[in-house]
Every structure is written in C-alpha cells, then in structure tokens.
Amino acid sequence: MPELLKVNNLIKRFGDSTVLDDISLTVKKGEVVVILGPSGCGKSTLLRCINALEDIQGGEILIDGENILTGGKHNSKVGMVFQSYDLFPHLTVLDNITLAPCKVQKRDKAQVRDEARELLKRVGLFDKEKSYPRELSGGQKQRAAIVRSLIMHPELLLFDEVTAALDPEMVREVLEVILDLAKQGKTMMIVTHEMQFARAIADRVIMIDGGKIIEENPPERFFTNPDTERARQFLNTFTYESVRA
C-alpha cells in the first residue's frame, strides 16, 4: 500500500514549551491509526498540525508527497471532526453538509443533496436533515459532523476525541459509524480515550507522551504486552484493580 501521510521530524512549540518533539510517522492508504496518550501529551496538536490549523516550527508534513503548508490553504485531501460539536448552529443539518461542496467545490446542488441524504441515511439521521444542531443530541451532532466531513471526499480523516463529550450510550452510536468507515477502507487517524474501541478498530496504535512517540505497535501487542513500561502504566490507569483493594 502506498503512503498517504508522511510526517518527518515534526516540531511544534507554543512559546517556550515544546508540544511535539521530533515526531515522525507514516500512514498508508486504507490504514486506521489510533493515537493514544495522557491528556496534554500533544495528540490533538498533532492532528491539528496535519490539518494545517497550526504552524510548525520544524520538520515537514506530506500528504501524497505534497507539503501541506504550502500556500496557506487547506489541503482538500484532509478532513477533520472535532471534539466539540462544531456544526454551524444557524444552519440545518442538510445546509451544514451541503455548504462546502456547493460553495467550495462548486458541485451541483441537487446532486450534493442526494449524496448528503444518502450519507445521512447511512449514519441513521435520514429524518434529521431539516433539524437545527440545537435540536440534536450530542451523538447525532457528531454523526452529522462526520457526514459533513465525508461529503468532501477526503482521503485522510482525522478524528479528535470525537466521543469525549458524550454519554456512554451516544459514544457507541458514533463509534459504530467510525467502525463502518473503517470497513469501507477509509484512511483514518483517531485520537481517543476509548480503549476497547481503539483495540477493535486500529491497524496500528501509536502512543505519545510528552510530545514524543513512546511506542508504535499493532493493537494486539500494544494492549496485551506493550514494549515500554510507560505504555503499561498508561494502560493500567484504565483498569480499577488497584482502587478496589
């Protein structure tokens, strides 16, 4: 499989603090990479850098061999779904989804609408196209946000803790949509705190701590027998064995 994303020696600083310190990784077409790590380790910042939302202080980010920071424009091969519900509150679900394809890609409105309805149906929101974001639950908003991203036909999808603000019941409905995308062979980078989900969906797990990649392994290995002590410690924080005693 050819490489879709290549990050070489990425350095990101906010003032004096180095948030990403010499990160290098590659993502192949069709691969699902899950990024794990404690809060504040730089996971989200990494995704934001790949999405050109942050300027970088060193290294390079290549998508299909093309540097993402050239021209200051967004690379249309990348799509991203954010942690906070970011649907535009003044537009209906359908208008949220069709805005960019119509205005940016100048696609035919009727055709875009058809595709939007098709995708909404897929994520179980076919009856919500006329609803405003305020009328939706958190899970529904995130599913609609995923559709809004999908309709631009990105080659690489970035998910930044998309279930972090949801009730457990809603987490599941969003994760099922993402699993469905994985089955379709979409290339994805997922930042999450849902360990079971990470294990089920990942082709590869990358753990970041203190702005550095600590470990990179297939999920079976990472979750059962990680190479590093730091990863082991991190995984232990998700079990409550020690609390029980």
Binding site: N51, H74, M80, F82
Partner: peptide, 14 residues
C-alpha cells in the same frame, strides 16, 4: 462566534 466554527470552515476548504 466560537473559534471552532472558523476552524471547521477552514477544514471544509472555505
């Protein structure tokens, strides 16, 4: 207007 809206607009290519 929440900054995340500008960011998602940017992500959508606007």
């Amino acid at each position: 207007v929440d900054k995340v809206h500008s960011e998602s607009a940017f992500t959508l290519g606007l």
